[in-house]
Amino acid sequence: MAHQVDWKQEWGEPVQDLRSLCIRMPGIVRFETKENRKEGYQEIQAVFRNIYDQTVWLDPAEADSAEELSWYLLALSRTIPEIDEEVYDHRMNLVRQYRSTLRRVLPFYASFSAEAQQRVQESIRSACREKILIAEKYTAYC
């Protein structure tokens, strides 16, 4: 029962560990989609929105921030495919967060650590598969 994580408490303010968000959130959303009638969707949205509002203060030029942002991009890109497409506004909210964050991150991509670069690349590949990015614009990252 991996879905019994109390993510609301764990992912309340402040954001402490985006790596854990990345690992857990896709599974939580999958559970909500398939088993829980999407009743937790609103709160999942709130979690991502809360994190997004905080990431705008992160400076991608700084190494620690780059790490956080790369995990956040990966979390979004792994979560988006798990959202039921019939709750389209929720999906598009995350898509907007992803695109907006990626635009901020890419100018600093070259200065990222190799691990952070890999996370960004994986997120881009997933976003291209989901057709929320135009693949031919990102061949350098794929």
Binding site: E85, E86, Y88, R99, K131, I132, L133, I134, K137
Partner: peptide
Amino acid sequence: LITAWDEEHEYNLASWEGNPL
């Protein structure tokens, strides 16, 4: 929905029960 080149706009071609699917 087809994502536009600028990745901000979109081309909505089809629909199912109120969503662009």
